[in-house]
Structure formats: structure tokens, C-alpha cells
Design a protein around this nucleic acid. Structure first.
Lengths: 291, 291
DNA sequence: TTCTTTTAGAAATATTTGTTTCAGAAATGT
DNA sequence: ACATTTCTGAAACAAATATTTCTAAAAGAA
């Protein structure tokens, strides 16, 4: 019938993942975590690591087409054996079943390189200074992005909203920007995203903001937006990729790191705001029921 | 004193080999035979393979300095784990002048871990299939995201716009979604972004789309959105981070890889569209000069 | 809401694994 | 050849591991 005898445990997990329950997925993820070695202990051990009960393990083993846990484990053992006896180290590829030349592997390599290079040249003190600025509740924060970096600005805004108030996302239409500048005060912070091709309007906005005594934080690429001249702090993220476009992965990573650090700085307040937000979402859901 | 705790099982066998008896050597050689996988079964199994009795196994384990067989086996397991754990650049420190504990380094570690694990469980064939779907000009593509994954949907949309037409970004307000479903036709593709907490409305949209014969591509997290049940293809991206929020870095990375692959598939058309776009931007700029 | 279905772990049970004991076999020395 | 020592596995025992059953809790449907 549907003889699954030839599939690896990992493949079976992937195939059946959508049919697994919450606890089973938790377990599946633990097994995947450092596969396949993680599944070699006793059923008790693996259940404890995954924070599920042993019956859950048995149930999942059966869902995956095994007769019981020992059979699943035997499968894992023979996979280990096969892997270890294969001298061609297939352990140094991102997507193991794709060739080195597959875009999945090439892209991951590029991202990795970008990460390394970017982080090596970030000054932790400057990073800390930026975090301090963004955590300062007495300063209003304004966020703006260009055509391609718009999504990053958006992402940053959405997350920062939970952490603090006095936050403005500057609309994308540059015609309206002067209005936003009107509302900027000395000591405020303007977070600018600008990667090539750099936008002239952003440079102008930076100039205007600077002249009002606003502190500029800039996220840009390795070549540097012209706005860098006016920026107090700037992060130059590597954006090379095997693609016709640039990669925003590293920029997003730094951005998330900043968000995480700011959140830690303001933890008490953030916690309250998160709770309020949860409540609000619940209310909304309830409200919707009656529509 | 004679703390043998740091030696591998193989080393211990070699060191003590001369003190072993006939039956024990027989056993030792079986273990060496295809080390270390051979020792991962039950004591019964290994005794049988070696044609010795189980007490012999226990005695040898003790001679080698273990408390009993399970302890020996645990040692073997951790050796396997060490051998198999993927050594892709487990890199000393990202930001060299910051301590290991600095959030810059911790975050980067987490991101790279996520990358590794996510890519390991992506099926390249599934990836290729997704690329093919998205490159197919006869299918319209619809893109939708939840509250937090909205920016990703946005990013994807912006870039895909350059590559092809018949592209719709579904508005964030879920009240309007039925209208979008009206425009979906059999064979169309719906790209869904949904990470926890999963949104009920997205599940509904997925159901509606599915019932109209639309192919679903889902980007979700390691726990899996409930919409996965309806998805033809889904990418489970690891999103753990040392933060109160989840990290979208890996999702973005996979997304960019997809974009890059689709772009390669459609290179001729893409090139033309890029050129047209450039021209349009120039025109806009020129136009502005006269305002 | 209230009812039904699904899910998940505690507890009981069955099964297997690992250890100890012990007596006979093999090896070694005299 | 005989005595002594060492080695080995059968069998009894102890200790886990694995499975099943069952109920409370959670999720979903009406």
C-alpha cells in the first residue's frame, strides 16, 4: 500500500507535519533540532526534552507510519549509520539535498558573508548609543524609508509601537514630508532607511530635519547614502546577493537586534504595553463576532 | 586520579585492550567495526551481534571505566552528536570588539542557527516547484500577510512587481477580503504569510481561496499556521530570537531567494520591465523639476 | 453560550532492558 | 594429572522503557 519504508524520519515529519497536533509538533521540532542524534535516547529522555508526555511520542511514531517508538528509533539509528559511514562530508551544505550550485545554497552563503562583514565593522558603542536614543522616552521618534526600504521602515515602526509611544511613521509620499518636519522638535530622532538607488528626497528630508536639531540614525548599504553626511549614527549593512536585487536580510537582522535591545532597556514599560495590546486584540475579536 | 571522563569510547578500548578477555575483545571489535553507530542499539542487540552474553557487555563497560552499559552508550551518543552537529562556520564572534554576551553577538548566533535549521529542512524540489508557479505568467498571484508579517508581504509584492504583472497585494483590512476572493480564478496562486499568533481570518481566506481552485503557498514558522492544511507548498522558517518578538530574518532570506530564482527564470522579461521602470522613475523626477 | 470532538498527560500495565548471582567451563600453573 | 584461577553465560532479579487506558482539559462546532 503506502509503503513509507524508504523515507527518512525527517522526510516523514515534513510530509505529515500539517497533520500533527501542537504537542506533536513540539516534539517533531525537538527531533529536528539536532537531527538525528536527538532521537537516540530513551523515549523518556526525548519526551522530557520536548516537554511532552511519553504517550505523545508513541502516538507520533505511529502517525509517522512506525509500529512504535523503538521502530522509529531504529530508523534513526540506521540513518546515523548511513551518514557516518559516508565519507563525503555532506554536513557542510545548507540545504543538504541540493547541490552547492543551487540558489538556496548560494544565497545562504551570500547572506552569511554579509552578516560577517557587516557585524565586524559595527562599533558596539555606537550600537549602544543608538539603543539609548531610541529608548529615551523624552524624544519623539520619526521613521522614514525609500521605495525599497519602505518595508523595513514599516517593520521597525510596527514593532517599536509596542515598545513605546511618540512614534511617527512618515508617509511614503514625499510631497507630504514638509508637514512631518513641522512636527519635529529639537532632540527628536529620525530613523532613516536609504539604500541604493538613493533618493534625493530623503537627502532633503535629512537636511531639513538636521537643521531643526533632530538626531539622525541611518540604515544604509556598504556604499552609504548621501544622507550619511547628516547622520549622527549610521549602520552600513552589506547587501550583496546572487540576484538582480540587493538583499535586506542583514539590515533586517541589525534592525531586529536594535529592537530587541531597546525592548530590554524599557522592559517594564514594554511588558505593560504588550499586555494592553493583547487585551485590545481580544476585544477586537469579540467585537467581530457580532458583525 | 584516573579520571577517564574525557576519553572517547574508542580511546578507552584501545587503552584497555590488552586487559580484555577473549569474549570482551570480540565485543570490542564489533563496536569498533562501524563505530560509533554499532553501539547505539540495546545491550541485547549488541551482545547478539558480537556473539557474547549480556553480562560480558556489562563487565566490559565497567572495565572501560563506566558505571554500566547505559553510561557507555550515553558516551557513544554524545560522540555521534558531536560528529554530526553541523560545523558550518560556527564562528567565534561576530562583532569582535563586543563580548560574547552582547546582544549583537547573541542575536547573530540565533539568526545563523535559524538559517541552518530552516534550510536543512527545506525540500529543494518543493522550492523549485514554488519558483515555477510564481514564474508562470498565466497565473495571477495574490499576496497577503497578517499583522506582523504584513511587511514581508509588502516586500515580496514590491519586488515581484518588477518581475511580472498580474500581481495583487491583498489589503490588510480583512473586511475587504471577500472582494479579493471574487477575483481569484482557478490556477491562480495565493502567497500567504502567517506566523504566530495565527490569524483566524487568514485561515478563512485560505479556505475560500482553496475552494476556488487557487494554489496556496505559505510562509510560516516552525510551529505552522493552521492554514498549512490547505497549502500546496509551505515553508517553515525558524523564528527564534533572544527577544520578546520573533525574528523574520530567515523568512526574508528565503523570500529573497525565491525572488531571485523567479527572476532568473523570467530573466528576459524582467530585464525589460526593469528598464521601463528606470525610465518611469526618471520621468517622474524630471516632472518634479517643473513643480 | 452549550455540546461535541479532539487532544494530552497521569496512571496502570506490559514489555524489554540491564544487572547480579552463580555454577560450570576453560585456561594456567605446578 | 590436579589444583587454582579466571572466564563465561544461564538464569534470576531489578530497573528501566514502552504501551495502553482513561479522564480532564482544550479546541471547535452548533
Amino acid at each position: 500500500m503506502n509503503d513509507t519504508r524508504d523515507f527518512t524520519v525527517a522526510e516523514r515529519i515534513r510530509a505529515k507535519f500539517d497533520d500533527l497536533t501542537r504537542a506533536e509538533r513540539q516534539l517533531a521540532n525537538t527531533i529536528r533540532k539536532n537531527y538525528p542524534a536527538s532521537g537516540l535516547g530513551s523515549i523518556t529522555a526525548i519526551a522530557e526534552t520536548s516537554d511532552v508526555s511519553t504517550p505523545t511520542v508513541v502516538r507520533m511514531a505511529k502517525k509517522l507510519g512506525f509500529k512504535g517508538f523503538p521502530e522509529l528509533q531504529a530508523a534513526l539509528r540506521s540513518e546515523v549509520e548511513a551518514t557516518l559511514s559516508n565519507p563525503i562530508a555532506k554536513h557542510n551544505r545548507w540545504a543538504e539535498s541540493a547541490p552547492d550550485t543551487h540558489i538556496l545554497n548560494r544565497f545562504a552563503d551570500a547572506v552569511m558573508d554579509n552578516m560577517r562583514q557587516t557585524l565586524r565593522q559595527i562599533d558596539p558603542q555606537e550600537f549602544d548609543a543608538v539603543v539609548k536614543l531610541l529608548a529615551d522616552k523624552d524624544r519623539s521618534i520619526h521613521v522614514v524609508g525609500g521605495r525599497l526600504s519602505r518595508s523595513l521602515a514599516d517593520y521597525f515602526f510596527t514593532h517599536m509601537q509596542v515598545i513605546r509611544d511618540h512614534l511617527t511613521l512618515v508617509a511614503s509620499n514625499s510631497n507630504t514630508w514638509p508637514h512631518y518636519v513641522l512636527n519635529m522638535r529639537e532632540g527628536d530622532v529620525l530613523v532613516v532607511f536609504d539604500v541604493r538607488r538613493y533618493e534625493r528626497d530623503i537627502l532633503r528630508l535629512a537636511e531639513m530635519a538636521k537643521s531643526k536639531g533632530v538626531t539622525l540614525i541611518l540604515f544604509t548599504d556598504q556604499w552609504g547614502s548621501p544622507a550619511a553626511k547628516h547622520a549622527t549614527h549610521s549602520f552600513h549593512c552589506r547587501i550583496e546577493a546572487p540576484s538582480a536585487w540587493d538583499s535586506s536580510v542583514v539590515t533586517l537582522s541589525i534592525l531586529e537586534t536594535v529592537i530587541s535591545a531597546v525592548q530590554t532597556e524599557n522592559w517594564d514599560e514594554t511588558q505593560d504595553r504588550m499586555k494592553d495590546l493583547e487585551d485590545l486584540f481580544d476585544t477586537t475579536k469579540l467585537f467581530k463576532k457580532f458583525i
